[in-house]
Design a protein around this nucleic acid. Structure first.
Lengths: 188, 188
DNA sequence: TGATTTAATTAGAATATCTAAGCATATAAC
DNA sequence: GTTATATGCTTAGATATTCTAATTAAATCA
């Protein structure tokens, strides 16, 4: 499979010729992939802007977000959540600890474990820009008709499921040789 | 705004209690945000796996993908496309050039510009896993009913629009041209 | 008890990422 | 035509990210 065109969000929105192409010649599956890229790119840009605003790097912000949203966690759980190795998480936590944004506490029950939580300072910091972003999204969202809201949730559920399903399907094919063969067919 | 809960994809799918919570007590806007996070996380994991398989780092893979999908570009265009500074792109390109995956050519018309393109070796490498992933998605997608496919495209368009709109001030700007200009400024 | 497993950290190295400064070319002003 | 300004890319220097492998400490198991 090949992309017909994969412009950034701006190009897609501003170029009438591309809009035409998009509407008429692309399959819905391809449209979905293009749109997903736009969505991810847009989110990425926003997160970078937020991290700049509150003076954290992007990985640091992501860890802070996870801690705020899920609550107290061990570095191991955190590393699974953000899809980084434990060693990487440890080094990012070191910097967040130095900034007094997180707290490390040895587990009392299982002394191998370390519980990470946000300090008051950390909670305060995270009250900043990110919430505003989400609020804006929510406001836009809630301006829509209920049927459209339901439609979007159903669609996102579908997409999320399909993306997860790819992990399942691909799992038995992690042998590189097989992957290569498959991609021979895949090209064009 | 606060998240009620933001579990990883697996937790959401496997924990009946959470499914219950999700269905009944969350607003659709919150559901959408949770689902978007799942989608982004899933995509991120997949990209990391792909980069590992073909022996590139994630930033390197992302540059290669952009070049494959859009074609010849200057470092400046590339940096806008992947939302990194030009200096960062230069340093990643250095490494890709050392691996003989990309080519640098001084512009003949405007000699300040440098045109980046994939070498044959680079094209060959990129025929690997990523296409397979997309194909899997497409296959799942095309198993659905046409009405459901259309619904998903419409929903993703909506979401993409709302995420872009966040770059604007609260002003309700429905003219797409203006939307674009504003989002250019927003990235600074 | 001794061996194995699990959780976190440390060590060491490559890469990524940014800002600021530098260099070469293009464009504009006069 | 020459000077000033702008543009496109690279370099320099600093910090942060990220990995694998080795280490330490605690729990588990046989």
């Amino acid at each position: 499979m090949q992309w017909l065109l994969t412009p950034g969000g701006c190009l897609y929105n501003s170029c009438p010729l591309f809009v035409e192409l998009f509407r008429n010649t692309m399959k819905d599956s391809q449209k979905s992939l293009v749109l997903l890229r736009q969505i991810i790119r847009s989110t990425d840009m926003q997160e970078k802007e937020i991290s700049r605003l509150i003076g954290l790097t992007l990985p640091q912000l992501i860890l802070m977000q996870a801690l705020r949203e899920i609550g107290q966690m061990t570095p191991g759980e955190l590393s699974k959540e953000v899809v980084l190795t434990q060693a990487t998480v440890t080094s990012i936590l070191d910097r967040l600890e130095k900034k007094k944004l997180i707290l490390r506490e040895r587990g009392s029950e299982d002394k191998r474990k370390v519980w990470i939580s946000l300090t008051d300072e950390g909670i305060e910091l995270m009250k900043g820009a990110p919430a505003t972003r989400q609020e804006l999204f929510v406001r836009h969202f809630e301006d829509m008709q209920p049927w459209e809201q339901s439609m979007i949730v159903a669609s996102l559920e579908r997409v999320a499921y399909m993306l997860n399903a790819q992990h399942l399907d691909a799992a038995p094919v992690l042998d590189i040789g097989q992957l290569d063969r498959a991609s021979e067919d895949a090209s064009e």
